[in-house]
């Protein structure tokens, strides 16, 4: 398999990562990324066939906590950081075609009035 990050690869990765890379930054970006990936190929020098992958520094332990309700953060506190709000809702661009209704803000299940 060809590992090179050609421009089509950059486009594909950017789409997967939901990341807009401006066309004027794309060329330099691609080149540096390629160099980094090249350096990672060092791992091919290691004999790894029979090695168990280690996903975590503390792997092998799976602790389950008691399911105890605790205080929740207030809606006001959480909404304070939202870039655009309408009433007690976070406003987002329309995601359903105009035929489906006029609401720009998806209706919340809590019945809170906007």
């Amino acid at each position: 398999m060809n590992d090179s990050i050609a421009d089509n690869m950059l486009t594909r990765l950017a789409r997967l990562a939901r990341l807009r890379i401006d066309p004027d930054e794309a060329a330099g970006f691609s080149e540096k990324l390629e160099l980094v990936i090249e350096s990672l190929r060092r791992l091919n020098e290691l004999e790894l066939d029979d090695v168990e992958p280690m996903t975590h520094a503390d792997a092998g332990r799976n602790r389950l906590d008691e399911d105890e309700p605790g205080p929740a953060m207030s809606l006001d506190a959480l909404l304070r950081n939202a870039p655009v709000t309408e009433g007690r809702h976070i406003a987002v661009p329309r995601i359903i075609d105009s035929g489906s209704g006029d609401e720009q803000v998806p209706g919340g299940g809590d019945g809170g009035g906007a």
Binding site: L43, L46, L48, V51, E52, P53, M54, A57
Partner: peptide, 14 residues
């Protein structure tokens, strides 16, 4: 080719 190998290398280093 990358992620799985790195997880294995992690074990060896550990």
């Amino acid at each position: 080719a990358y992620y799985l190998k790195a997880l294995k290398a992690r074990r060896l280093i550990h």
